[in-house]
Amino acid sequence: MESVTNWIERKLGLKVNVTKSKITGPRNLKYLGFGFWKDGKANQWRARPHQDSIKRFKEKLRKLTQRKWSISFTERLEKLNQVIRGWVNYFLIGSMKGALTEIDSRLRTRLRMIIWKMWKVSSKRQWGLQKLGISKDLARLTSYCGDRYYFVATKTCVSRAISKDILTQRGLISPLDYYEHRCNVRFN
């Protein structure tokens, strides 16, 4: 490493930061937020968002979907859409369908929990579920499940009532759908 550093500084006239610079294989490399993996079929190296970048993206979405943050749902969706568009557009050259599938479902679950908390009382919850097409009896039964937000958002009729289509109509951009759309536009 020492001789390479000397050569770069002497011949090219560049300053090398030895704490950040290293010689490594592509699997261990993190460059501008990207990691690399070898595609067995094509026998090529491909880029994808590094695990640290995915972790930071999830953390940012988690902060924007905190239940205790009192902000209108429309404003929340606008902020989420800005973050989603920016992140997907930056990492568009990478392969990230698997990661975005998980992030997409987690995001919708967190938004369902927010809506459930916004409805607050059982009568409002029953009214909201009925308005979204759930039968009166099932809506009443679900509305008295209490404040077990994750359970209600995943295991009851709330996931069927507040579906992906409903959230899309409200203005949410699905990270996975946006990525697939951008890939189709880019390659066509």
Rank of each mutant, 00 (worst) to 15 (best):
R46G: 00
A47N: 06
A47D: 01
A47M: 14
R48N: 08
R48Y: 13
R48M: 11
R48S: 11
H50I: 03
Q51G: 10
Q51Y: 05
S53R: 07
K55C: 04
F57L: 00
F57T: 00
F57W: 12
E59D: 15
E59Q: 06
R62N: 13
R62P: 04
R62C: 01
K63N: 15
T65R: 06
Q66H: 10
Q66R: 15
R67Y: 08
W69T: 12
W69I: 07
W69P: 08
W69E: 03
S70T: 03
I71P: 14
I71M: 14
S72V: 03
T74P: 00
E75L: 06
L77R: 09
L77V: 14
L77G: 01
K79C: 05
L80V: 10
L80W: 09
Q82R: 09
V83N: 11
R85L: 04
R85E: 11
W87V: 00
V88Y: 07
V88D: 04
V88L: 02
N89L: 03
N89Q: 09
N89Y: 00
F91N: 03
S95W: 13
M96Y: 07
M96V: 05
M96C: 03
G98H: 14
G98N: 03
A99E: 12
L100T: 10
L100E: 03
T101R: 15
T101W: 13
E102G: 07
E102T: 15
I103D: 05
I103T: 15
L107K: 10
R108H: 14
L111R: 02
R112D: 11
I114P: 13
K117G: 06
K117R: 13
M118P: 01
S122C: 07
K124Q: 14
W127T: 02
W127I: 00
G128V: 04
G128L: 08
L129C: 09
Q130W: 13
K136V: 07
K136L: 11
K136H: 15
D137T: 13
L141D: 05
Y144N: 09
Y144V: 07
Y144K: 06
G146R: 05
G146D: 06
R148T: 05
R148F: 05
Y149H: 09
K155M: 12
V158W: 15
V158P: 10
V158G: 04
S159C: 08
S159V: 02
R160K: 15
I162N: 08
S163P: 09
S163Q: 03
K164A: 15
L167C: 08
T168V: 05
